[in-house]
Each structure stands twice: as structure tokens, then as C-alpha cells.
């Protein structure tokens, strides 16, 4: 189900917790599975649960509770733009609208070529850098004015 590289990373996470608390590694393990497969299928969640010796339903509860897990396929690149108040005051909402127009999609939609999914995110803890866009949960892009957004989209093509 997962590559040996991913399993190695999961094992490193398990080692952070007391030996009888493997379940503590579930968040990181799901994130690693999602990073490898692009999203979390029921099979992937069940695999992670079995690997950690926990009930699949408990792993599913975690996967469905935290909003950075994708339980449905998303585009190759997922762009999350923060529109919360501090970002809104510095163009977060405008950046979201600009992205929608450029990509021809609404929030929670994917471009026809399957390249980009657009999401409206919640506070990313980087309000001073507004507008902020996160690519695939991992890369934070700061001060995303129109020129910077154009540059990012060109790079992701």
C-alpha cells in the first residue's frame, strides 16, 4: 500500500512516543500516506490503522476531523488561501477572488486538467505575511499579490 520510504518515515514517527502509544503517530502517518498518494482513500486509512494496531474507525475519525486531510481526490496541486479577518484586511479575500478568476474555478473545485484544486483555508498563523497561500499543505507562499500569484501559477503549470 505504501512505499518502504513512507513506512520508514512512519516508523520514525512511532519512535517518538512511548512503546504502548503507537496510536499517537496516526496524524503523522496519515499525512505521510496522503503525501505519497495525493489523498486519503478508505483503503489507505485502514492500512495506516492496521499498521499502528488501532481500529480503522478511530483512524477515520482523525482523518475526518482535521481539515488538512483530503478524503477525496484533489488536483496535483492544492492551493489553500487564507481569507480569515487579518488576511482579509490585507487582501486575502481579493487574492482568493483573483485565483478563482485566473483558474476559472470556485473554492473546492479542481481545474479541468486536474492540475489545481482551490481551497479556502483557515488561519495559518502567518497573518503578517498576508495574503498567504499554501501549496499541498507544505509550502507557504507569503505576500501573494497579483504578480506573485501569476508567478506561482506559471511555476505550477
Amino acid at each position: 500500500m505504501l512505499t518502504s520510504e513512507s513506512l520508514k518515515r512512519i516508523d520514525r514517527e512511532i519512535a517518538k512516543y512511548p512503546v504502548d502509544q503507537k496510536q499517537s503517530a496516526v496524524m503523522a502517518s496519515l499525512a505521510i500516506a496522503q503525501e505519497e498518494q495525493g489523498w486519503l482513500s478508505s483503503d489507505a486509512i485502514e492500512f495506516v490503522a492496521n499498521y499502528l494496531g488501532m481500529a480503522p474507525i478511530a483512524a477515520y475519525e482523525v482523518a475526518s476531523f482535521y481539515n488538512m486531510y483530503d478524503l477525496k481526490p484533489v488536483g496535483k496541486y492544492k492551493l489553500s488561501v487564507c481569507t480569515n479577518l487579518p488576511c482579509m484586511l490585507s487582501g486575502g479575500v481579493d487574492a482568493g477572488e483573483y485565483l478563482k478568476k485566473k483558474l476559472g474555478i470556485d473554492y473546492n473545485e479542481t481545474t479541468a486538467d486536474g492540475l489545481i484544486t482551490l481551497k479556502e483555508g483557515e488561519c495559518m498563523g502567518a497573518c503578517g505575511d498576508a495574503p498567504v497561500v499554501i501549496v499541498n499543505n507544505r509550502r507557504m507562499c507569503s505576500w501573494m499579490n497579483p504578480e506573485q500569484i501569476d508567478k506561482l501559477l506559471a511555476e505550477l503549470k
Binding site: 496516526v26 488538512m68 486531510y69
Partner: peptide, 27 residues
């Protein structure tokens, strides 16, 4: 000392939700 990476839940800033989250549960 170890680092635990959250995955997008404001409520985990509440200290007991954070503990639940480290234990591998809903926060």
C-alpha cells in the same frame, strides 16, 4: 523532547484537545 505536527484544527490550541490530539484522537 519530540515534535508533533498538527494537521489543521484550531481547537487543538485548547490544552486538553491538544493532549487528545497527541494521543492520536480527534481534538
Amino acid at each position: 523532547l519530540f515534535a508533533h505536527h498538527g494537521y489543521g484544527a484550531y481547537i487543538c490550541g485548547e490544552e486538553t484537545a491538544l493532549l487528545e490530539s497527541i494521543e492520536g484522537k480527534k481534538g
